[in-house]
Each structure stands twice: as C-alpha cells, then as structure tokens.
C-alpha cells in the first residue's frame, strides 16, 4: 500500500512535469512575439528593401513599380573614382583606430596595474573612462575648440616655436586627427578588459621570477604579456569586422567638404549621396556591398575565434 502510494505520487509527479514541458511552448512563443514583430518590421522588411539596389528606385512608384536595372548600380559604383578612395579612407581610419587603440589600451592597463595607491587608481579610472560615455556630438565640440587654427593645441605648438597646423582643414592631418581623438576617447574604457586579464595572472609567477632576479621589463615581457595574449588575440580577431566601420558619428560631426578627400568614409558617403541626395538605389547598393563584406568578416572572425581561442561571439 505504502509503495503503491509512493508509485502513484511518482507518476503524478512525472505526469505533471511532462505536461508542463509539453504546454510550455505556447507561453514562450507569446513572449517572443512582440520582439519578433519589431524585428520583422525594422530589420527584416528593410532587408527586402535591398531589392532597390537592383532597381532605379522612384519613391512615387514604390518598390514594386520601379524599373529593374540589374547590377547597373554596382557597375556604376565601381566606375566611380571616388569609391576606391572612400574604401581606402574607411579602412585606413578604422585600422588605425583598432591598432593604435589596442596598443594604447594594453600599455595603459599595464602601467595602471602598477599603481598601488588605491585612491589614485580609482580617480584615474573614473577620469579615463568618462569620454567613452560622451556622445561624439559633445566631443566634436571639444575637439573643434581644441584643434581649430587658434585653438589650444595650436597655441601650444606656437609656444614651442612650431608652425600652426590646420588639423580640421588639411587632408594630410584629418585622418590622424580622427584616429587620435578616437583613441583618446576609448583607450581608458578598452583597458578594462586587459586590466581584468592582468589581474587574472597568477601572482606566484611574478614572485618566483623576481626571486630569480627578473626585472620589471622582463616580468612584463615574459609573464604579464603572455598571460594577456589569449584575450588580446580574441579581441583582435573580433575587432576585424570593424574595419569597415570607421565611425559615422565622429566623422560626420568633424568633417567639412575641405577634407572629403581623406575623411569621407562609406557610411558618410551613403548618407550624403543616398539619403540627402536622394539617390536611394545607389546608396542602398553601396550599403549592401558594405553589409555583405561586413557579414563575411563577422562570420570569419567568429570561426577564427572558435578555432584559436575556444570562445565565440554567438
């Protein structure tokens, strides 16, 4: 009797459990519904709009009525002398930001880790993380005030007997300005991950090596950096897809027609020609080209990360 009751209870338990498991699908679908609706409207329907890259889109005729032109927009794109320049600008600016930004963040995390005064360390962290949270609209004003012809930077240059530099209006200096100010904005925040990696290194290794007579440089080179290497490698791989994202907000808020030659990037070009110039089809074609390359890069980066570091983005 007792065992029967137990068996019964067990059965009821199992029944209840399996019932839950069967019925659980519907509430889950309902939960996902609102988000999926927004995803379809604002992400998947625009994907269908990509069709206009193969059309001569006329807003009045709509997506279904506009004439189909095949790859004409793409052949036109590649026939433009501008386009290779814009690709080059995009890649140079983006790579510059990635490489310099990574190096500076690593160096900064190493020296910050040496600071033993807790108060000082915290204050410095508070300050260097701050620019990351500010909009480029705000920082563009800061940069314009600092780097204009009579701004503080040029005042310092003239004080030391150098010539004034037209950072904002010269095609030679505009790219370094973009890279430099972006690195300035992000190096502190980017150092967070590296700092976490440094603190994860076994302190015993440092003790052992200093007993063996290794100096600071040797310990950084042989212990700290190798300890950071996996995370450096991972972030380097994962930043690869960004080589086509040179930073619309920054460029748009800082550039002028004088520096289109070296400052114009894919996103600003699509915005100016496609949206403002109302060349919807052509703009979409350029954007599509960028999206496809971007997707290939993300997928390759994810695969590379999985293979070499056992981690992945998704």
């Amino acid at each position: 009797m007792k065992s029967l009751q137990q068996g019964n209870a067990k059965n009821i338990y199992q029944e209840k459990k399996s019932k839950k498991l069967i019925n659980i699908g519907l509430p889950y679908h309902i939960m996902l519904l609102p988000g999926m609706i927004f995803l379809v409207i604002f992400t998947y329907i625009p994907m269908a709009g990509i069709f206009m890259a193969f059309q001569d889109y006329v807003p009045a005729k709509g997506l279904l009525g506009s004439p189909f032109v095949g790859l004409e927009n793409f052949t036109y794109m590649f026939s433009l002398p501008d386009i290779s320049k814009i690709f080059r600008n995009t890649i140079v600016i983006a790579l510059g930001k990635i490489i310099l930004g990574t190096l500076l963040a690593i160096v900064f995390s190493i020296i910050l880790n040496e600071i033993r005064l807790k108060f000082l360390k915290n204050s410095i962290q508070t300050i260097v993380y701050l620019p990351h949270f500010l909009s480029w609209v705000v920082l563009a004003s800061v940069v314009l005030n600092m780097f204009n012809l009579d701004g503080s930077v040029n005042q310092i240059l003239t004080f030391f007997g150098f010539e004034k530099l037209n950072f904002l209006g010269s095609n030679k200096l505009f790219q370094p300005l973009l890279i430099g100010t972006d690195v300035w904005k992000e190096f502190g925040f980017n150092s967070i991950v590296y700092l976490a990696a440094i603190t994860a290194v076994d302190p015993g290794l440092h003790e052992a090596s200093s007993i063996d007579g290794a100096n600071w440089w040797k310990r950084i080179w042989h212990i700290t950096l190798p300890g950071m290497l996996p995370i450096i490698l991972l972030l380097a791989i994962l930043s690869l897809p960004n080589i086509l994202n040179a930073g619309f907000d920054q460029v748009y808020t800082l550039y002028t027609p004088m520096v289109y030659e070296t400052g114009d990037i894919l996103d600003t070009y699509v915005y100016r020609i496609g949206l403002i110039g109302r060349e919807y089809s052509f703009g979409t074609a350029v954007g599509l080209f960028k999206s496809i390359i971007g997707m290939v890069l993300i997928l390759s980066a994810n695969n590379a990360a999985k293979r070499y570091t056992d981690r992945k983005l998704f």
């Binding site: 604002f42 329907i45 625009p46 709009g49 206009m52 496609g274 949206l275 954007g287 997707m295």
Partner: peptide, 15 residues
C-alpha cells in the same frame, strides 16, 4: 539580424 541589415536607406523608407 545582428549580422546583416538592410542599411540606412531601406530602414529610413520603412520608418
């Protein structure tokens, strides 16, 4: 949706 998007212009037209 994270990997690929229609881009600036089709999204603008939908909105």
């Amino acid at each position: 949706a994270m990997l690929f998007n229609g881009g600036m212009i089709p999204t603008y037209l939908v909105v």
